[in-house]
């Protein structure tokens, strides 16, 4: 099967007790203990005041890692196409629209216009492009528990065919009640990677990521090595990115296969 490779030029993380790469790398490397705590993402500095007011917690989560990953890559954020992937998208907004529709019955003007345009799955990508003045394509994927795997596969396919770097941003936020009962989600989690064609960074790459799709080889949920993070991997589908982030923090090559459809994505880092 086809193997795809890309250099990792920047990495970012936001999750419970994982507040950015600089603070999280020692935890993921096993040199500092992990402690679960609520970690509300910061207001996105890239957004102007009007957009910042309109952006809810899901957009803030996505933009936190988009901003950190691009800053770490030293590439201008407005220069990168992007792949956004999320299983739930902005379920906080969709849930509030569903509440409003149920409450309004057959009344006109049941829904807030701002909520409506924020409900699209590409809302986070839209705010990112507005905030950074980014004119490049952004595709937005969702595939339930396989959303991170789909985003990673798509990002490597795009880097390979376009031969240019891009931003990969994966995020999932808990759904509001009563939808939360359908997809229990432990806590918000997001990860960001700036990926580039092998050799693009001329020595600035953190590591090279190799991906190989194995359609007939199933994989189990990857187990993180950091004590205390297994619940997060089980409780937020995008936290399946944690084993890759741990391997980056530990400068290791091997990491577990990632479930994707009936098969898996074999992943490896080279240094």
């Amino acid at each position: 099967m086809t193997a795809l490779s890309a250099d990792i030029l920047g990495v970012a993380i936001w999750g419970p007790g994982l507040e950015g790469w600089a603070a999280s790398a020692p935890i993921l490397a096993g040199t500092q203990p992990y402690a679960f705590r609520a970690s509300p993402p910061p207001a996105p500095a890239v957004l102007a005041a009007t957009e910042r007011r309109r952006a809810g917690p899901v957009v803030r989560l996505a933009l936190a890692v988009a901003q950190e990953a691009t800053a770490a890559s030293a590439l201008p954020p407005e220069s990168l196409p992007s792949v956004f992937a999320s299983g739930h998208g902005d379920a906080v907004v969709v849930g509030s629209i569903l509440e409003a529709l149920a409450a309004a019955g057959q009344q006109p003007r049941a829904v807030s216009p701002t909520q409506f345009h924020n409900s699209v799955h590409n809302a986070a990508a839209g705010y990112w492009s507005i905030g950074t003045g980014n004119p490049h394509p952004a595709t937005c994927l969702g595939l339930g528990d396989d959303s991170y795997a789909a985003g990673l596969l798509k990002a490597l396919a795009e880097v390979t065919t376009t031969n240019r770097p891009l931003l990969l941003c994966v995020y999932d936020h808990p759904l509001p009640p009563p939808l939360d009962a359908c997809r229990p989600t432990l806590a918000p989690f997001a990860a960001g990677l700036v990926l580039a064609p092998p050799g693009f960074g001329a020595g600035t790459a953190l590591a090279r990521l190799h991906l190989h799709w194995q359609p007939e080889t199933p994989a189990t949920l990857p187990s993180p090595r950091t004590p205390g993070l297994a619940a997060l991997v089980a409780g937020n589908a995008c936290a399946r990115a944690l084993p890759l982030l741990e391997a980056l923090a530990r400068h290791e090559a091997e990491l577990p296969a990632l479930p994707y459809l009936e098969g898996s994505l074999a992943l490896r880092l080279s240094w």
């Binding site: 699209v120 952004a138 994927l141 595939l143 396989d146 799709w213 459809l261």
Partner: peptide, 9 residues
Amino acid sequence: RGPLFMVST
């Protein structure tokens, strides 16, 4: 049994 993406833009 091939790759699957759902796109929502």
